[in-house]
């Protein structure tokens, strides 16, 4: 019989899960200049739906947890470069140097356009994962394996002393990592097109300017230096440039990675801190174990002699 036992019922997990969903909100904003354009975001999200289930095979399963965006405002401001006609050089017979013609620009000054569509209604993400709970002992006296597969994703450095680590060992993780649906990409493209169209007068002048710039869609790609689809570019922008959605990755992928414990406890455990020059009182912990069955999660630990 273990010296200390703590058991938490599945019902408590479910209620805590509901509590977390009701109260967890995420809000963040950022803006970065990319030279010709400025991009930013202002987002707020919460959790909805989903179920948590303790299973008899020593695993915890969270299914179809939705990350709902209350606000997913994307801001993009572009300095429209000069749109000009003419120019180019005429090849002259040697020894006369080439003559390069001046250009005449369609607009005076460099116009700016900016958009800030709210994509909240169009973006939804779902997270499902299954993982087993395991306790592992970290012995600081043993050398770190070489190569160390955990090194790139370890959130906290390895401790200098022995510890018990509780991990959630992922078995399946299904995270829809901000894969913009076409509609969100189209929405931004349309908003940007409208903003650019707004600075171009109507009538045949618009036809001519659009002909010069090769159409707004191409123009946008040219402005943003996008080789292909705008939705892929946006996805990269959010995930790579801003790291906005890293929090989902961090929360789920790192949290449920076998390299990062969700809970760590020193061994020996400090019961009484050092005080008035006295050494701390430390208790050796032995045989820490965590197990899950279909009704509860049980953690047990013994005190060393």
């Amino acid at each position: 019989m273990a010296h200390f036992t703590l058991a938490v019922s599945e019902r408590t997990f479910q209620r805590s899960f509901d509590l977390l969903k009701r109260n967890l909100t995420f809000a963040q904003a950022d803006q970065t200049s990319f030279g010709i354009f400025v991009a930013g975001y202002d987002v707020r999200a919460h959790l909805e739906g989903g179920t948590i289930d303790l299973r008899a095979d020593n695993t915890i399963s969270v299914k179809e947890l939705d990350i709902r965006w209350d606000r997913l405002r994307f801001m993009l401001g572009i300095n429209i470069p000069e749109i000009c006609v003419g120019g180019g050089c005429i090849n002259m017979p040697w020894p006369i140097p080439d003559i390069c013609l001046p250009r005449v620009c369609v607009f005076s000054g460099n116009p700016d356009v900016s958009i800030s569509p709210d994509l909240a209604a169009f973006v939804a993400q779902e997270v499902s994962f299954t993982g087993s709970v395991v306790a592992r002992y970290f012995d600081a006296s043993l050398p770190v394996p070489s190569p160390d597969p955990c090194a790139p994703i370890r959130l906290e450095p390895l401790p200098s002393h022995n510890q018990w680590h509780i991990h959630i060992d992922p078995q399946t993780i299904d995270v829809d990592l901000f894969d913009f649906p076409d509609i969100a990409g189209n929405l931004i493209e349309n908003a940007l097109s409208n903003a650019i169209r707004a600075i171009i007068p109507g009538g045949f002048v618009r036809d001519i300017i659009l002909a010069i710039i090769g159409g707004i869609a191409d123009f946008i790609r040219f402005l943003l230096d996008i080789p292909d689809e705008i939705d892929e570019w946006l996805s990269d922008l959010f995930n790579v440039s801003f790291g906005l959605l890293d929090f989902i990755g961090t929360l789920i992928l790192d949290f449920f990675s076998s390299c990062n414990p969700i809970y760590r406890i020193d061994d020996p455990f400090e019961l009484l801190p050092a005080r008035d020059g006295l050494i701390p009182v430390r208790i050796p912990l032995r045989d820490l174990s965590v197990r899950v069955n279909d009704v509860e999660m049980v953690a047990e630990v013994n005190i060393g002699g």
Partner: peptide, 23 residues
Amino acid sequence: AFTDRCDIFGSVHEEGINRIVRH
């Protein structure tokens, strides 16, 4: 199960306490 009739169950064995006292 430990939690058949409660949400959270905690227990401590006398040997655990006595070992802590000795430490």
